[in-house]
């Protein structure tokens, strides 16, 4: 049942994407109950998720980036 602080933080991150298992969530909740530091980290992690959603981020695909690199090489 006992997990390391780093593992607890990793599970916290995984849960931001809804991909933590029920067992991992249980482990995380137990850890959160005793650790103020993890509670703060969890709050920040949730805030980051919310910021990313609000920012309406866009990104070029790896394929687009490879194409751009090719064009740059041809023009350099």
């Amino acid at each position: 049942m006992k997990i390391s602080r780093e593992k607890a933080k990793e599970i916290c991150t995984k849960s931001q994407y809804g991909e933590a298992t029920w067992w991992e969530i249980l482990q995380l909740k137990v850890y959160l109950f005793f650790s103020k530091e993890l509670a703060q980290f969890s709050a920040k992690n949730t805030k980051l998720t919310s910021l990313c959603e609000h920012a309406n981020l866009q990104t070029l695909s790896e394929k687009d980036k490879e194409q751009l690199k090719k064009v740059l090489e041809e023009n350099s």
Binding site: K9, E10, T13, K14, Q16, Y17, K44, N45, L48
Partner: peptide
């Protein structure tokens, strides 16, 4: 998950 966790920690 290790990479995403490190990325998020650095972003924070």
């Amino acid at each position: 998950w290790v990479m995403i966790h490190r990325a998020r920690t650095a972003l924070m």
